[in-house]
């Protein structure tokens, strides 16, 4: 399988704090790969570095064989690597449809309409609320909007940062159903989650992060049944 994303030995600092200490991993075509770990393990920092919002001092990040190390964040989106940020960060003053249009900013205008239809088919709730201001949506709807907005960019790889954060269990299930259906449709997904149980059960492969390092990796099933993981992350 071809590696879509290849992260090699990245080191990221916040001022003098060494947040990511030599992480390496890869995501192959059509896979769901998840990074799990506790608060402060460096999951979001890793995604922000891949998205170009933070920079690594060492190593390399390659997307479809091309280095991303010095590419501006908006150019990374143009290449098809799109992130749904932690906390959703939808535009609360823009309408639902305007939010979606912003997602397609890097795309030619002619594709916006068909993309909107696809997203509305996936999230009928967004169609109902298309003219509503983003800030008036509930948490679950905002998460749908954030994911729909990312899909508008026609991503070759979509990175999801804590999509289940702050959602009621039933909505968490719904969001993970959507992740599964995207996967079945052939999407390549890099998923960061604190909800290890949910993440591991959909993931093809997983990496466990602890204080800025990869401490374990394997298939979702392997980690789900590993004693260490069960003790540390699944509360068993």
């Amino acid at each position: 399988m071809a590696a879509v994303l290849k992260v090699e030995d990245i080191n990221v600092y916040y001022g003098s704090i060494h947040a990511i200490k030599g992480i390496s991993f890869e995501v192959n075509e059509g896979e769901i790969v998840t990074l799990i770990g506790a608060n402060g393990a460096g999951k979001s920092t890793t995604l922000n570095t891949i998205a170009g919002l933070l920079r690594s001092r060492t190593g390399s990040i390659e997307f479809h064989g091309e280095p991303l190390g010095k590419v501006a964040p908006h150019k990374i989106v143009e290449r098809g690597l799109v992130m749904v940020p932690e906390g959703r960060r939808i535009f609360t003053q823009l309408t639902v449809e305007e939010n979606l249009e912003m997602g397609a900013y890097s795309q030619p205008n002619a594709t916006i309409k068909p993309s909107l239809e696809e997203v509305y088919a996936l999230f009928p709730r967004l169609l109902e609320r298309r003219n509503q201001i983003g800030g008036t949506l509930s948490g679950g709807e905002q998460q749908m909007l954030a994911m729909g907005r990312a899909l508008m960019a026609k991503p070759k790889l979509i990175m999801l940062d804590e999509p289940s954060m702050g959602l009621a269990p039933i909505l968490v299930d719904h969001i993970f159903d959507i992740i599964k259906s995207l996967h079945e449709g052939g999407a390549t997904i890099l998923l960061v989650e604190q909800n290890a149980q949910a993440a591991l059960s959909v993931a093809d492969r997983a990496y466990v992060l602890e204080t800025g390092k990869v401490v374990m990796s394997g298939t979702g099933r392997e980690l789900l049944t590993s004693d260490e993981i069960r003790k540390a992350y699944l509360g068993a």
Binding site: A51, L53, A72, H74, V77, M83, F91, Q93, M102
Partner: peptide, 24 residues
């Protein structure tokens, strides 16, 4: 307009706007 909406997006959240592919 697309650019006008992008201006509103940037005004609200520069980081999220970048993640949309908007050149801030």
């Amino acid at each position: 307009t697309k650019l006008g909406k992008a201006m509103r997006a940037v005004s609200e959240d520069k980081g999220a706007a970048q993640l949309m592919g908007i050149d801030v």
